[in-house]
């Protein structure tokens, strides 16, 4: 069934556009004056002001490596994160502990651990898969660089960003 939409009947004054134009001008000048005298503030000055304090606990920022409370690395170079990473952002080169040394039981440590931040999609799968709770997504989101090489976070950088995380880790425990 056809619906007939009734066009509003405009008076002569309304059809002259003037009331609507003046009304519009009044609205915009109010906004102009309010912003001019700083009564409206909606834009955040990004690099100086950030939303960081408002980021939730579970925010998925840059993936980083963490150390335990004794400043020892947690990663055992199992390479699970390397395998699961969807865009293949992680490159690990494992190395062996000497078999006659005190930490022979730990077996492996990452000699090289690179995350290419141009590739990373911040999915958080590496954090989820890590058996040693060694890799965590932190709140850093503004990862910038001038070259591609600069955008690859190496082990040092990853530890620097990650810091220390307390909690149960078994690998350095001689009894386990």
């Amino acid at each position: 069934m056809a619906t007939i939409v009734q066009r509003p009947q405009l008076s002569l004054l309304e059809r002259s556009y003037f009331p609507a134009i003046l009304g519009g001008l009044w609205i915009t000048i109010k906004h102009f004056i309010k912003t001019l005298f700083g009564q409206t503030k909606v834009t955040m000055q990004y690099p100086e002001q950030k939303w960081d304090s408002a980021l939730p606990e579970w925010y998925r920022g840059a993936p980083t490596l963490v150390k335990d409370e004794h400043d020892r690395e947690r990663c055992v170079a199992c390479q699970l994160c390397e395998f699961i990473c969807p865009p293949r952002a992680i490159t690990i080169k494992p190395a062996e502990f000497p078999s006659n040394g005190p930490w022979a039981k730990v077996e492996k440590y990452p000699e090289k651990f690179d995350i290419d931040m141009i590739r990373c999609i911040y999915c958080g799968l590496c954090e989820e898969v890590c058996p040693e709770q060694a890799i965590f997504l932190r709140k850093d989101y503004s990862i910038t660089g001038l070259t591609r090489a600069e955008m690859v976070h190496d082990k040092e950088k990853l530890y620097e960003l990650g810091g220390v995380r307390h909690g149960l880790v078994n690998k350095w425990n001689e009894k386990k």
């Binding site: 915009t28 906004h31 102009f32 309010k34 912003t35 001019l36 409206t40 909606v42 834009t43 000055q45």
Partner: peptide, 10 residues
Amino acid sequence: KVSAFIQDRI
């Protein structure tokens, strides 16, 4: 500037 102020921007 004017467009920004009218639209509540900076």
